[in-house]
Design a binder for these strands. Structure first.
Length: 276
DNA sequence: AACGATCCCTGTTGGC
DNA sequence: TGCCAACAGGGATCGT
């Protein structure tokens, strides 16, 4: 599923196709994609004909400046991906939104499970949306260990649940949260407030390394191939995962079988020997 | 306020 | 072999 490394890889792939171009045509094939648009009828007219500016990312959100003061927002949900093609290329059956540029390229949002969404927001709408309440970006604005610890102090929620809370830190999803906790040698069901400053520091270090590794490999494409790079290639990070999806397989560090359990409804993977 | 449960979706998987 | 329930999960929302 697309998490920070996948969204950042997607952003980088879209930059040369979108930045500086104008939007020649917009097609919405599945109206559910617009459910975060305050008034869905605004989407196509707000986007059509606009010049595309900077492409930014905050956590798992893609934020694209368009026209004067508008932001084109994308979230890929759990099965969304972007595809860069020509207009002649056959459409994947789960194509949901198509945007054609004045250069004739098409950017297609493909999302079988439709958990993704897109919208074009004014500055005021953006300021009132959940995007404005996102925590610091886990890649570009990673807080200090002391700052992370102060946010965890007194919290009884499971550490992994806090890491998945996008208001605390923006960008981690289920895969990378498990990987971070393994790299930090911390069990994800530990109450967040019970962590020592050294453990929070280990988590902070692990976040930086795990996300950088994932990004270097172009993200994680699971076997179901839900996520692909915009050029259609698969991310190569799957084979580097330490715990996610490795239930019963030997821990890469100590050899003990990886255990899968649920933490607040999320499937969670850990080494019972390495993570305390 | 904090936290957990539920819902939205559909392709894939596993059990009978 | 075929069918169907269970599963996957990010984020919004609701109940406790």
């Amino acid at each position: 599923m697309p998490e920070l490394p996948e969204v950042e890889t997607t952003r980088r792939g879209l930059v040369p196709v979108l930045a500086g171009r104008s939007v020649a045509r917009v097609e919405v094939l599945h109206p559910r994609m617009l459910r975060r648009q305050p008034d869905p009828v605004d989407f196509v007219p707000r986007l059509s004909g606009q010049v595309v500016g900077e492409l930014r990312r905050r956590g798992k959100f893609l934020l694209i400046e368009v026209g004067e003061g508008l932001t084109w927002v994308f979230h890929l949900g759990m099965s969304g991906r972007m595809s860069i093609t020509t207009r002649e290329a056959p459409r994947h059956p789960h194509t949901r939104v198509v945007v054609r540029t004045d250069a004739g390229r098409e950017v297609r949002m493909v999302d079988p499970r439709t958990f993704g969404f897109t919208s074009v927001l004014t500055a005021d709408e953006l300021a009132e949306s959940s995007i404005a309440r996102l925590g610091p970006d886990a890649l570009t604005a990673l807080p200090s260990a002391r700052e992370l610890a102060s946010g965890a102090a007194g919290r009884r929620v499971a550490t992994k649940t806090l890491l998945l809370d996008q208001r605390y830190l923006a960008g981690l999803g289920n895969i990378y949260a498990d990987e971070v906790l393994f790299a930090a040698a911390v069990a994800g069901d530990r109450p967040a407030g019970s962590l020592s400053l050294a453990e929070v520091g280990a988590i902070r270090t692990a976040i930086g390394r795990v996300l950088a590794d994932g990004l270097e490999h172009g993200g994680t494409s699971l076997d179901d191939l839900a996520y692909l790079l915009p050029d259609g290639r698969a991310g190569r990070h799957l084979e580097y995962l330490s715990v996610y999806g490795r239930e019963g397989k030997p821990c890469r560090r100590c050899g003990a079988p990886i255990v899968k359990a649920r933490i607040n409804g999320r499937s969670s993977h850990r080494c019972p020997a390495c993570q305390a």
